[in-house]
Simulated scan of single mutants.
Amino acid sequence: MLTGSCLCGTVAYEAEAPLERIVHCHCRTCRKTHGAAFSSVTAVPRASFRWVKGESLLAAIESSPGKFRRFCSKCGSHVMAERTAQPVVLLRLGCLDTPIGERPEVHIWRSDAAPWYDPKRQAPEKPEGL
């Protein structure tokens, strides 16, 4: 079971599905939507996904024809995306509450990536803050 929620906790979902494949998307739209170098996502079957609370507080933007990015209207967290005719929905892993041990399988849309981020380049790590 996968569970997730927004930053303020108003919106929550669950999906009775395993986490099968983590993807980092570097397209311009994902970068703009999340204010980051990329967005981490996984697809789950639409039939296994359901809103647990806050569905009426969701807002959405149609970022490309037929693709809706759903976010909490109170805190702005982007929690999922969907193409309504597709059999899967995309969960935004930054909002996932279920602990996972899996690692990303692929970076996509590297042709559209932020020029200041290269996933092959190692950077120092710090446990907290600057």
Rank of each mutant, 00 (worst) to 15 (best):
R83Y: 13
F49R: 00
F71P: 00
C72M: 06
Q86R: 08
R83K: 12
L96R: 01
L58I: 02
G76Y: 07
E102K: 02
E105G: 10
P104Q: 12
D112T: 04
G94A: 10
R110Q: 15
I108T: 12
S56E: 15
H78V: 13
R50S: 14
S64I: 05
P87Q: 04
L93D: 04
V88G: 01
C75M: 10
D97N: 09
C72W: 05
E62H: 05
M80A: 12
I100M: 10
T98Y: 14
E102M: 06
E105M: 05
R69H: 10
P104R: 04
A60C: 12
P65W: 13
C95K: 00
A81T: 01
L90S: 07
K74Y: 13
F49V: 09
I100C: 03
E62D: 11
K74F: 12
F49G: 01
C72S: 05
G76P: 03
E102A: 07
A114I: 12
V89L: 11
L58Q: 01
F68S: 08
R103F: 13
R83H: 14
I108R: 02
R92M: 13
P87V: 02
W109K: 01
A81H: 02
E62I: 11
V79N: 01
K67G: 05
F49I: 06
C95F: 03
L90M: 12
R83L: 11
A47W: 09
